[in-house]
Design a protein around this nucleic acid. Structure first.
Lengths: 199, 199
DNA sequence: CATTCCAATGAACGACCGTTCATTCACGAC
DNA sequence: GTCGTGAATGAACGGTCGTTCATTGGAATG
């Protein structure tokens, strides 16, 4: 029965994600993870070769899901302003539901062994490149005021990702209203008027 | 001779800051810190009652220095745009030189026992309030397009603080040029034209 | 010179760490 | 009914963790 194995494996990943986000990788033990799943520590090694592999799996899966989700949403047509708005809206709405994974992805990069680190970092670069392309197109089209594409891209991503550090469900705003605000700020931050992006 | 004690104490704090920023609180041992300073682990307890106290001291000192540095720079006169520009410039230039402390302050908040956590969080609120005041003034004066003061303040701080995650000395930009870009993006993000703030 | 005081030491503590391994167990395939 | 397979177990491993403590050493004070 492969199902059971898959479920236990996922349960381990889920428990590890929640625990590491709460306490950090170094502060979570295999015994903690096992007891959250309802098994003994040694049983984990039937599913993962090491503690590092759990962290590596978590971060790789997070970045892969992020890139795949963006690939489904991205559009090549429309003005650069439209595509920037779409990017901002996607980033905020996607990340708001994944605060644990985002937190780990940003905080535990340094806890990763090189083999995982390189792969995760490469995916981060690919994601950032998507935004850089939009900014470059916006400059070509004429509407964007951007002094430095690399810095602007990172500044926008930092601004948008910041939502995960304070957002909590059941706050005063819906996800949509929250995204509206971030979309507008993003557009304005590259010199566009409020309301420029149609998305 | 009080000097020697003070120096050893500072050396412990400096070593802990660098090590924790590199590896995280949970992954740094008292033996690691001691050996970086050149003493034995047990000697640390002549200066700090516990490992937690070292982390607490680091974070409290960081926030106190930040608030004190801002208090020296802040101006009550000038337009809101000027003061926003001054805030952005201060935040970027100050944080760029303190990447270790900033990283710890953001990452290890959850590692802090409640007593320290409350104090540190209160100082963070005070700092954020400075920016909120500027935004509120800018709305009153008429020039700012801000849909939500709380979210805008956090978005701006996240954007500006983000510089610490990738900036490294000896990069292609001077600190001043870097700050110029962030100041301009900050002003535009609240709907001001590029070049609005005079600072 | 004698006294005080504090930083530093090295050994030890109980606890917990990640990982290994022989073994047990439940189950579907033949 | 037997076999093979893979998940789960509990005990154990060597090591490291934060912390304690009696002791030492070396200035500053009187």
């Amino acid at each position: 029965m492969l199902d059971r194995s898959q479920n236990t494996r996922d349960a381990i990943l889920d428990a590890a994600k929640a625990l590491i986000a709460e306490r950090s990788y170094g502060a979570v033990s295999m015994r903690d993870i096992a007891s959250a799943v309802g098994i003994r520590q040694s049983a984990i090694y039937n599913h993962f070769p090491s503690k590092q592999a759990i962290l590596g799996d978590l971060m790789m899966a997070h970045m892969e899901r992020l890139l795949a989700a963006w690939a489904q949403v991205r559009q090549f047509h429309g003005t650069a302003a439209d595509r920037l708005a779409a990017f901002a809206r996607f980033h905020v709405t996607y990340h708001v539901d994944q605060t644990d994974a985002v937190f780990i992805a940003y905080m535990e990069l340094r806890s990763l062994e090189e083999r995982y680190f390189e792969a995760v970092n490469e995916m981060r670069r690919r994601y950032e490149y998507e935004l850089r392309t939009i900014l470059a197109d916006g400059i070509d089209e004429g509407g964007f005021k951007v002094r430095d594409i690399a810095i602007t891209a990172r500044a926008i991503i930092a601004m948008l990702t910041g939502v995960t550090t304070w957002y909590s469900e059941g706050g005063r705003l819906t996800t949509g209203a929250l995204a509206d605000i971030y979309v507008e700020m993003t557009l304005m931050s590259v010199g566009l008027e409020a309301g420029a992006g149609r998305t």
